[in-house]
């Protein structure tokens, strides 16, 4: 495991937060790490939805099962975590 600090901009939350992800983990695990600091704290859970990840300002999401170190994500990039329907890619 290799710690990767990123900036989490979580949908519905009021601020940007520092989140430590694992660069050897998947995008999904990064989303979980971000959700830990927002969902159930200031953001209501949305059962049935999944959390997708994209770079601020972009519309396309990273693949949920992609390994973080295989993407272009670098330390302290600002990422948006957005609730989506599971079927939408």
């Amino acid at each position: 495991m290799s710690q990767l600090p990123i900036i989490s901009n979580f949908q519905g939350d009021f601020l940007l937060q520092l989140v430590l992800g694992d660069s050897e983990g998947t995008i999904n695990s990064l989303a979980e790490a971000a959700a830990y600091h927002s969902v159930g704290r200031r953001v209501a859970p949305q059962p049935g939805k999944v959390i997708r990840v994209r770079r601020q300002g972009e519309t396309g999401f990273y693949k949920p099962d992609a390994k973080v170190s295989d993407t272009d994500i670098k330390a302290m990039d600002c990422l948006e975590f957005v609730f989506s329907d599971p079927d939408k890619k």
Partner: peptide, 14 residues
């Protein structure tokens, strides 16, 4: 903190 509107008006941005 970098912050703005949450909830249904979510517009937080870096």
């Amino acid at each position: 903190p970098i912050c703005a509107i949450p909830g249904n008006g979510w517009n937080v941005k870096d």
